[in-house]
Every structure is written in structure tokens, then in C-alpha cells.
Write a protein that binds this DNA or RNA. Structure first.
Lengths: 213, 213
DNA sequence: GACAATCTTAAACTGGCGTTTTAATCTACT
DNA sequence: AGTAGATTAAAACGCCAGTTTAAGATTGTC
């Protein structure tokens, strides 16, 4: 095994984890290198600088996206309501479960919501837009409106906003609501809530449409 | 005029603005002092350290809260639907319009959502809980559920999450949706959207309730 | 007007960050 | 085996943050 590739791979893996946990600017090169058991100078040797490491992590995390249920264009034959429930459940799962690369990529996105970096455009194109488009297709199928309709877009942004909020405001959430926990069953409950909230609106949208046309 | 009070007041005002714009950790003491035309050492002389300045800013911004429409306990005689629309509109207004102290306080809260500080508990108690409780009262009045009901709480968290999201994810929002602007009329539209989304759910809640009881 | 307490200032200190340098080590090829 | 090139390691650099220091200016009081 070439030591080059080995170190490079270890750095990428560590960087993906640390970036996902802390976000780009809060993550430190020393922290990444320490987790990769590598010298601080190596990220500059292998990647140039911190930002290039970050974009490389994006490429590194890109591959498993093909099998990514949340990003695959939606099969319009399926039940859209159930699809919406499922994708929201998957989004929340990803936001909390720190496992594989697809989840890490997802959490990079959540950090970008809050503090855009120089690689934001790339993140938007690579990870956010697929989810955004899929959500729009599903919501449009439920409401009967166009995926490009203002209401559809607003609804999708509301979904993403709620997921992001539950993902990184849990400390405040728990302060306001002591019974709130971040256990998997609670996540299920939150996912169901977001889905039903959205569905109530989309259903009403459909009704209004048939009435007014 | 005692120079002490003058400098102290200038520092507090500048600190409130900078903290509201950048958040606690992104704001720098040098930036605050420069805006207050004061020496860097003065914040330590007058307040001890950065965190104590921050908590003092919270106290400083507390007073105008009495006249704060968004935090005043809700008069149950009013139309709850209209009250919901109005409070959401006010929240979004505050998130963007950087004017008086009440708005600044509100924006401190939005930053805390994203990156909790050592003063988070204080922020929660002073600025978030009043809004939270008022929203719960209004939502409960619409749905017929208890303000303590899980569904009510989830709904309120969803509202706050959406407001927070629209407040600090505008760069990404605009990347995904080029027509999106942050003009006041667009804000109105977003506020109306969030309100109607919520109302659709709460109305359905009320229906389900009467059916199942 | 002098003195003590208060306030202000310029400058330095400390520490963490990203980055660079320089030298040592390892690998592959003749 | 020996050498060129690629890789690693240790240390230092420059920057900017929060904080501290020690001297200077200002104020109120007798």
C-alpha cells in the first residue's frame, strides 16, 4: 500500500467527520490531523489548504449519493404522501445519525445553512439541490401545483428549515421543553409532525385550487 | 455627564449591535470598541470580559420588552388566527429589521439557536420563553388542544424553526431559488406562508379532535 | 490648587489558528 | 547499494483573538 494514499485517505475520513461535527470554520486542521494520526503539515502537503481539503471532502462524500434515497429523482408512480413522510424521516435521521458518508455530507449541508463558506455554491449544487428538487416534485404531486410554483418552493423551504432547526437547536429546544429528548423514537415523532404539518397545508392547497378553478 | 456612564453606554449600544449582527463568538471586542470609539481595554475595565458584556447587553435590551407585542401575554379575546399571522409577521420583521433594542434582542436569540453560548439559559428565559409561551397560547386557542400538548409544542417549534431558517439561510435560499429576494414585500409573503401553513395544520387538529371525541 | 479615586490609553502578553519551512525519512528504480 | 523523488516530522512564522499591565489623563472633593 502506498503510504501516500493511506495518509490521504485517513485525512479525508477524519476531515469529513470533523467538518460534519463542527462545520468548516469551527473545525481545526490540528483536530483533523490528530484524529487521522497525521502531522499538521500533511493537509497542506496533500491538499494545499483547509478550503481545498473541504471541497475534496465533498467529492469524497459524493459517491454514495447514487444510492441516496433522499436525492434520487422521485418515482411519480409511488404514493406521494408516503414519499413525503419517508423523505422527511430520512432527512432527520441523517441530521443526527453520524454514520456513513451520505449522512456526513448531509450534515455539512446543515452547517452551510448557518454559516456559508467559499464552497457553499458547490454544496448547494451537489447535496442540496437534489433534495430540494425531489421535495418539490413530491409536494407538487400532493398539492397539484407546479414544482416551480411559489407556494411549492416556500413549502419545501419550510420543510428544510424545520429539519435544520431540529438538527442544531436541540439545546434550546430542551431548555424550552424539558421532556424533549433526542432519542430515535422522539426523532420519529418530530419527523411525523413535520410531515403532517406539511401535508395539512398541501391538502388544503389542492382543495383551494379545485374550488377556484 | 459622568464619562463612566457615557463610555459604558456607548459600549453597550455598540456591543448590542455587533452581537446582533455577528453573534457572540463571531463578534470581536476590537470591533465593538472601534464602533464605540473606545479603547479595547475598556470592555474589560467596565464589564470584566466578553461574556459579561454579552449578558449585560441582554439586561440592557430587556427594558423595551414591556411594550413588546410579540412577548405580551396574549389577550384571549382577540381573534387567534389573526394573532398568529401578526406575531409571525412581527417575528420575521424583527429578524431582518435591525432598528431598536427589541429587534436586536431578537436577533441575539436567532444566533443562540445556531450556536449556544454560556448565556444561552439566560437568553432562553429572557427573550425566547415569552414568545414561546405566547405562541403556544395562540396555537392552543386555534387547535383546541392544551398549550402543553405535544402537538402544540411541536407546532410552535416548527414556527420558530422556520423563522430562524428564513432569517439566516438567505444566501442558500437565494442560491436554490434565484427569484427569492429579501425585500419587505417578500418577507410579508414568507410570513403569510408560515402562518397559513401552520393554520392549515391547527385547523385539521381541531377537526380531528371533534371527530375523535 | 492638591490629592485621591476614577477613568482612559498604548502596548504588550498569551494562546490558538492556518500555514510554511527545513530537515529527516522512506520508497522505488538502476 | 545508491541516489532521486516523494512523503513525513518538528519547529517556527504571522496573524488575530481576548486579556492584562502599567502609565497617563480626568474628575470630584477638601
Amino acid at each position: 500500500m502506498k503510504p501516500h494514499d493511506d495518509t490521504r485517505a485517513r485525512l479525508l475520513k477524519a476531515a469529513a467527520e470533523v467538518f460534519a461535527e463542527q462545520g468548516f470554520e469551527h473545525a481545526t486542521i490540528r483536530q483533523i490531523c490528530s484524529r487521522a494520526s497525521a502531522n499538521v503539515a500533511l493537509v497542506n502537503y496533500h491538499f494545499g489548504d483547509k478550503l481545498e481539503l473541504y471541497t475534496e471532502v465533498l467529492r469524497y462524500c459524493k459517491k454514495p449519493a447514487e444510492g441516496d434515497a433522499a436525492a434520487r429523482p422521485w418515482n411519480s408512480a409511488a404514493d406521494p404522501q408516503e414519499a413525503l413522510r419517508e423523505i422527511i424521516r430520512a432527512m432527520l435521521e441523517r441530521a443526527f445519525e453520524g454514520g456513513d458518508q451520505a449522512n456526513l455530507r448531509y450534515r455539512l449541508m446543515l452547517h452551510e445553512f448557518v454559516k456559508p463558506t467559499a464552497a457553499t455554491k458547490r454544496i448547494v449544487d451537489v447535496v442540496m439541490r437534489p433534495v430540494y428538487d425531489r421535495l418539490r416534485a413530491i409536494c407538487a404531486a400532493i398539492s397539484g401545483l407546479s414544482p416551480d410554483h411559489e407556494t411549492t418552493r416556500l413549502t419545501v423551504h419550510s420543510i428544510m428549515g424545520q429539519v435544520a432547526h431540529y438538527a442544531h437547536s436541540t439545546p434550546i429546544l430542551m431548555a424550552l421543553w424539558p421532556d424533549m429528548k433526542v432519542t430515535p423514537p422522539q426523532r420519529e415523532m418530530v419527523a411525523r409532525h413535520i410531515a403532517e404539518l406539511t401535508l395539512a397545508y398541501l391538502d388544503r392547497q389542492r382543495v383551494h385550487q379545485t374550488v377556484s378553478r
